[in-house]
Simulated scan of single mutants.
Amino acid sequence: MIQQKLQRVCVFGVIVFCLVFTTAVNAMVPKSEKNALLELYKSTKGQNWNTVWDVNAPVESWFGVTVQNGHVVEINLFRNNLEGRLPESIGNLKHLVNLNLAFNIISGEIPKSIAQLSKLEVLKLEMNRLEGEIPSEIGNMESLVRLSAFNNFLSGKIPESLGNIQTLRELNLSSNNLTGRIPNSLGELSKLESLGLFENKLYGSIPGELGKLGNLKELVLANNELGGEIPKEFGQLASLKVLQIQNNNIFSFENMEGMNSGQFLVFDYDKKEVGKEDKYKDFDVIKTRMADTKFEDEMDE
């Protein structure tokens, strides 16, 4: 009998501890962070989301929100029917490491305040309806590893400031309305492994500075208005496996002779432009996919 009472007391104690702990964790989430989440919920019609938030419940119980040490560190609302604009207050989520809002119906411009997320490593905004220019302030996001915003309506030039993000490994701005030249500064992204600029309105010569990207595995520049010649510096891209430069205005492929044809898994170029001699027949040209097929979002990323 005594033993049963002790067991009940222990069970009751554990339940009380869990309730107190949960309440304490929720209480530690700063008001500014909770308000930023509530504004995001309101501005993207949270009542119509596929999975809605119970805003009266603890923050850490909200779908897609991860709280650690009293701060919001992750928001993953992938394919959750968000419709509307991103609020400026999103910049108040100072401890955010992962922000995945891909495959929704988000419109309007990318808030400049997003650059205040200095700890952010992953920013996924692809497959939305975002428009306007990419804020140059994003170049101040010193922890960013992945920036993916393909299939939107972004316009204007690619900011030179993106070359400041030395941690960046993936940059995908494909299928937008971006114009101007590819910034030389992208050649400073020494850790970059994947660069996707497919299907924009980019013009001018391809910067030779891209040849400095020794870790680059995928370079997708197809379906633009790029001209000039293939930079001789591309011969330094020893890690490159995927190169897609077709459907541009490039008039000389001569410098591709310095590239190792055996390194490519996918190589697409305007073969008709090479001429009858086809000096590059040794290249294994595989035209079985377009740029964005590899950039499919995953819920666990």
Rank of each mutant, 00 (worst) to 15 (best):
F150M: 12
L40T: 01
E277Q: 14
G211V: 07
G204A: 14
P159N: 08
G64H: 00
G211F: 04
V274N: 09
L226A: 14
G84K: 06
N81I: 01
V52N: 04
L123P: 05
L125S: 02
N249G: 14
F63D: 11
K157W: 12
L86G: 03
E83F: 02
L77E: 03
E74K: 15
L240R: 11
T288A: 07
G70C: 13
K271S: 06
V97K: 01
N76Q: 10
L237A: 13
S143I: 06
S143N: 13
L226D: 00
E193Y: 13
I206H: 00
Q116C: 11
L130H: 07
Q7I: 15
D282M: 10
I106R: 07
A115E: 01
E301I: 15
L101E: 02
H71L: 06
L19H: 04
S261T: 04
T51A: 11
A238I: 15
A36D: 05
I106Q: 07
M299C: 12
G139T: 06
S43C: 08
L173K: 05
F103P: 00
K5W: 07
P231R: 10
S89D: 02
L147D: 11
S32R: 08
K287C: 13
L221Q: 00
E137F: 00
S32M: 12
S205A: 15
D300V: 11
E257H: 15
L168G: 05
S136I: 07
W53M: 00
N26W: 13
E225W: 04
G227T: 09
S107T: 10
D282Y: 08
N200G: 09
N248T: 05
M28R: 15
N26A: 14
N176P: 01
N176W: 02
G70V: 09
D268W: 00
S155Q: 05
V242N: 06
D292K: 08
F150K: 03
L101T: 05
S185Y: 09
A36G: 02
N140H: 14
E126R: 02
G13R: 08
N172V: 05
K201G: 12
E88Q: 10
S175Q: 06
N140S: 15
C10K: 09
R146L: 15
L37S: 07
V122T: 11
S136L: 06
P87Q: 06
N26I: 05
M141A: 04
L38S: 07
K281I: 10
G187W: 02
N80W: 01
L237C: 13
A36K: 00
A57G: 11
G258S: 15
D268P: 06
N152E: 10
D270F: 08
